[in-house]
Design a protein around this nucleic acid. Sequence first.
DNA 1: AGACTTCGGTATCAGTCGGTACCGAACGCC
DNA 2: GGCGTTCGGTACCGACTGATACCGAAGTCT
Lengths: 204, 204
Amino acid sequence: MESKRTSPIGRPRGFDADEALERAVRVFWAQGYEGASLDDLTGAMGITRTSMYRAFGNKEELFRQALQRYTEGPASYVARALGQPTAREVATTFLAGAIRSTTQPDCPAGCLGVQGSLAAGESGRRARDLLAAWREGGTAYLRERFQRAVDEGDLPVGADPGLLARYLMTVANGIAVQAAGGTAADELQLVADMALQTWPPARS
Amino acid sequence: MESKRTSPIGRPRGFDADEALERAVRVFWAQGYEGASLDDLTGAMGITRTSMYRAFGNKEELFRQALQRYTEGPASYVARALGQPTAREVATTFLAGAIRSTTQPDCPAGCLGVQGSLAAGESGRRARDLLAAWREGGTAYLRERFQRAVDEGDLPVGADPGLLARYLMTVANGIAVQAAGGTAADELQLVADMALQTWPPARS
DNA sequence: AGACTTCGGTATCAGTCGGTACCGAACGCC
DNA sequence: GGCGTTCGGTACCGACTGATACCGAAGTCT
């Protein structure tokens, strides 16, 4: 039984949903969830409100999918960092990726996961909570990675994986705020270097 | 020539403008500039739109005054930190104050200067820029203080006051984001302690 | 060819946004 | 008391918010 169709029935959509989503990411990134109106979004996506609602459901769902897209794109440095062989390399790669992503010249400054919705009115509460969970998820990934590092003997037995993860995420979020305010990448790299000076030494 | 009046002419206002402003601070703090509607604000302030406009000008001006009030109130820890006798005490007091202020149980979590408006649509752009300048001003104060510390011999001659200031502000802003996400004060204090381990030693 | 399904555009919805005109009420000054 | 001024409340403004109903167009399937 092959249920896969060569093409879905009915009129095919006349735009590239992937590219439209990517445009939406930029708008949410630059203006936040509440600050991005449907006109802003559909204008940048190059489609009408009707097409957006049919393809993505509603504004909140569009934001959800935009966040996922952001995770796989601009924020893919997180997964890349987690894959580094040592805890120290995880940390340095993570912060370097955060700096690079938040100061990319052809992208909005800052981090969608931070400035997308930190404080919000009633209408943006769901988006705010979604982002808080997203950030907390990142912290959890780091914690698990550092726990593994302790287990593997890559970090001292006394090291606290939860604290190291929280510390890194705190610095990264601070970097995102700085970047949103216009601080340059090279200056942020000096900050990251300083933050990494306290990193526990690898066990020999 | 005494131009001072015992009381201004005309009908006196029937509410405490200071207390109303303090209520407005809470709303902006919790919901951000764009997320706080006039109904939210005036409802919390206990006054009508008309009274608000007469007393404060408009929403943007109200936000300006709320930010100033916030600076003198919840964010007064900055000035207190700057007055500490040594650079190290400035740093520890600054971060401790940031943690305390962003996790106060009877106040919104986080920092108004960060979550008030990080990313915004057209209507909130002025507020966003105002807050960016506010944060940059805090960094400048720290830099001047650390420059003085270098001059006074309190910090090593090789220390970079600008980097130290940026570093501290980055960690503090990161703490604010963590606090907005619900991270507890004691956990943030551990992060601050770790961040301060790299602090340059005082010259003996 | 004709049935069926989806797409995209227009036009519109009720609700909310920030901001104001208007007016009677309440006060200080003379 | 009368005048001038400010206050506070109602009622309203045009613009915009997110979200839909409707309908012809454009496809696939039998």
